[in-house]
Computed example of a mutant assay.
Amino acid sequence: MPLGVVMRRTPGVTRWAKWSWKAAAVLPGAGPAEWRELRREGDAVEYHAATRMLELYAAETEAYAHGLAARVPGVYVVMRRVTGEFPLDIVLVTASPFEAQDYADSSEDIVENVPMPPGLIAWVSEFLDEFHQSECFVKRQRDSERVDRKQDGVGDPRIGKAADIYASPGLIRSRLQ
């Protein structure tokens, strides 16, 4: 599904940052756009920054279910800093919090959570109903064999030792003399 990303530019609060940018919303089914101005309220301006495809995969339904179970289900917008009039490039939009975490771990990308509109929640929920298969938790059982009672050897057999390596140094010296 194509999702338009709405970016909001507000004046910065410090002298080092002239503007503050934030992903404000997504527009399901949006057409192509490149930083088209949508709304202006004083110094705050909202832009339709880009339209990216939101793709869902059957193998990642657990992640989507986890995202929908959040207090406020969200879509994650992944951005990278660039130079120019608009300082951010919209890289990706995803509904998977696990994938978003992977991008956030790189520290090269900026990841922001944007609330999902009700229609998008319904679309992802339908996808989950069709493809999600719950896996029940299976606790791993230990083997009954005790492997800690047998000592295979002490140290590396390729290295010759004058005495027991667990003996105190004083005992080793007295044995060697």
Rank of each mutant, 00 (worst) to 15 (best):
residue 86 F to V: 00
residue 141 Q to E: 09
residue 94 T to I: 04
residue 160 G to I: 10
residue 116 M to W: 12
residue 89 D to R: 07
residue 147 V to E: 13
residue 72 V to C: 05
residue 168 S to G: 05
residue 63 A to N: 11
residue 160 G to S: 14
residue 89 D to Y: 05
residue 80 R to M: 11
residue 122 A to R: 09
residue 158 R to F: 01
residue 66 H to C: 07
residue 140 R to G: 00
residue 106 S to W: 01
residue 152 D to F: 09
residue 153 G to R: 10
residue 136 C to G: 14
residue 155 G to C: 02
residue 164 D to Y: 11
residue 101 Q to L: 14
residue 85 E to L: 04
residue 89 D to T: 00
residue 125 S to I: 00
residue 80 R to V: 08
residue 87 P to F: 03
residue 158 R to Q: 03
residue 75 V to H: 03
residue 110 I to A: 15
residue 140 R to K: 09
residue 62 E to Q: 03
residue 161 K to T: 12
residue 139 K to F: 07
residue 99 E to P: 01
residue 144 S to Q: 11
residue 167 A to D: 08
residue 125 S to P: 02
residue 75 V to I: 08
residue 168 S to W: 05
residue 65 A to C: 02
residue 127 F to D: 03
residue 136 C to I: 14
residue 63 A to D: 12
residue 148 D to A: 03
residue 141 Q to V: 02
residue 119 G to I: 12
residue 90 I to P: 00
residue 83 T to K: 10
residue 140 R to W: 02
residue 100 A to C: 02
residue 158 R to C: 00
residue 62 E to V: 02
residue 72 V to S: 08
residue 70 A to V: 10
residue 66 H to Q: 13
residue 147 V to C: 13
residue 61 T to D: 02
residue 127 F to P: 04
residue 77 V to K: 10
residue 66 H to K: 12
residue 102 D to M: 10
residue 74 G to A: 13
residue 161 K to P: 04
residue 98 F to I: 15
residue 149 R to E: 15
residue 127 F to N: 00
residue 161 K to F: 12
residue 64 Y to Q: 01
residue 108 E to R: 10
residue 104 A to G: 01
residue 115 P to A: 13
residue 93 V to H: 06
residue 116 M to E: 15
residue 115 P to R: 11
residue 64 Y to A: 00
residue 145 E to R: 15
residue 162 A to E: 01
residue 87 P to H: 05
residue 154 V to A: 01
residue 70 A to C: 14
residue 121 I to N: 05
residue 107 S to H: 05
residue 168 S to R: 07
residue 86 F to C: 03
residue 166 Y to Q: 15
residue 65 A to R: 09
residue 140 R to C: 03
residue 149 R to Y: 11
residue 146 R to I: 13
residue 154 V to W: 02
residue 62 E to A: 07
residue 163 A to W: 01
residue 166 Y to H: 14
residue 140 R to V: 05
residue 162 A to S: 06
residue 113 N to A: 15
residue 71 R to I: 08
